[in-house]
Amino acid sequence: MSGSNPRVAIVTGGSRGIGREVVTRLAADGLAVVVGYAGNKDKAEEAADAVRQAGGRAVAVRADVADENAVTALFDTAEEEFGGVDVVAHVAGKMVLQPLVDFDLAVLDDMHRTNIRGTLVVAQQAARRLRPGGALITFSSSIVVQATPAYGPYAASKGAVEALTLILARELRGRDVTVNAVAPGPTVTDLFLEGRDQATIDRLASLAPLERLGTPADLAGVVSFLAGAEGHWINGQIIRVNGGAI
């Protein structure tokens, strides 16, 4: 498309970490970007400002992904500001780690509200609104197959994301819209580093045969590929982006 009528992306969880890098990458690819965020307005506005300063188009919109009215408004804004929606990168999520035997059920409900209900709510709007040639990219986690202790309730929520993703890809037959999940391994973000000592970080880095942690740019590159024409024949897949750490 021409620069005056770009493709349009919504990125949830776009204020920091992997989501922020996805915002930057999709904007560099020429897409107008709606930066969805839950509470960190300053960081989200900073992400949108950076896109605009680089010559792109972006707005920041607050939306709790599990709130269907907020997510409807998020998509409405994308259509009103930029004319439609072509790509949805649903990066927003929560992770709480604790052995299952001690897990607080209120914490479970809150995490699953964001990770499962939030994915379903965002996917509903994406299914209704993505234009032909479009792509929905959900985020799972490689922990689903790594089966690491203390990750049970979180991994369960991401297993649900994978199931929803695979089934929605088939439900959208005839729409020319792809649905895939990206499943990161250990990735260097502020949230990842928080509370981890260097020995733990080194151990996680050693899991991959490539002997390093992932970076947000590693993930954003895969999202860029799935969002673009070259990745459009990939559909209904879980892509584990983890350097071989399985």
Rank of each mutant, 00 (worst) to 15 (best):
V65S: 15
E81F: 10
G159D: 09
V91N: 11
Q53C: 01
V51K: 07
G243W: 07
A147N: 08
T189S: 01
Y37V: 03
R20W: 05
R7Y: 12
A48R: 03
N235M: 11
L166N: 14
N69P: 04
Q53T: 13
R128S: 02
G228S: 15
L105Q: 09
G159W: 13
G83S: 09
D197H: 05
S157C: 04
I201D: 05
A47H: 05
S4E: 08
E162C: 03
G174S: 07
G13W: 03
E194N: 14
A78C: 08
G3W: 08
R129G: 10
A208M: 09
V107D: 05
V121R: 13
L219C: 12
G134K: 02
V33I: 14
I143F: 07
V96Q: 09
L105A: 08
A169L: 14
T24F: 11
T72G: 15
D202F: 06
T119K: 09
T178G: 01
V91W: 08
D104N: 09
Y154R: 02
R16C: 09
T119W: 06
L172Q: 04
V34A: 07
T119I: 10
V61N: 14
A78E: 14
P184S: 12
A199M: 05
V85P: 02
T114Y: 11
L191A: 13
K158P: 10
V88F: 01
G93M: 05
G84N: 00
R52H: 01
G19F: 02
V107F: 02
A44C: 03
V241K: 09
L164S: 14
G84D: 06
A217R: 13
A66C: 04
V222M: 10
A181K: 07
A155S: 15
Q53P: 00
Q98R: 12
T77D: 02
A66E: 03
S157D: 06
A32T: 05
G221S: 12
L226S: 01
S140W: 00
A60M: 01
S4G: 11
N40V: 02
E68N: 08
A127P: 04
I10V: 15
A9V: 09
E211N: 13
T189G: 00
D86G: 10
A66I: 00
L213R: 05
T119L: 13
V71L: 02
V61W: 07
R7H: 10
G118R: 10
A155T: 13
L168R: 06
Y154S: 10
V59S: 15
G13T: 03
T215V: 06
L210S: 12
L166K: 12
R117F: 03
S4F: 05
G214C: 04
